[in-house]
Amino acid sequence: MPCTDFENLLIDYRELAPVDRCRADVHLQACAECRNWFEALAEVDAALTARFEGLHAPATLAAALQRKVAQSGPLRVSAVPDILDFAGGLGVICATTVLACFYIPSSLLSAPILVACSSILLAAAVSAAAWSLRGNEN
């Protein structure tokens, strides 16, 4: 183990300011244990760089993916457009309902209007379900 006071300096040696690097160098000259540890650290860094740097995906990856995607058949694209996003859709429906309550005279609240309102609510429910499914896909 390096001396406690110099551990951080030695670990960050590459990024040190000149004055700190000078301090570390002076200590390394005087302390054999830190010198041994620092050499080991340099060796670890070099070995890790040689082992991992510039690593690419194997060529077989893309080819295997092409095969699997071709086997999986055409992509199922959601039929629900973005405009029917749950939050937006629900907002429009709520606003419409509130306006309807204010402006439609009670005498006009007949069966066809109730059917229309029910249809809107049903559409909202379908939109919410579709939105939920799309969220799970992602």
Binding site: A57, T60, L61, L65, K68, V69, L75, S78, N138
Partner: peptide
Amino acid sequence: EDSAQEAFLRIWKGLGG
């Protein structure tokens, strides 16, 4: 490599959404 393949297949399936 297996995991990367699996990840890309999930991405493919989710791409439409």
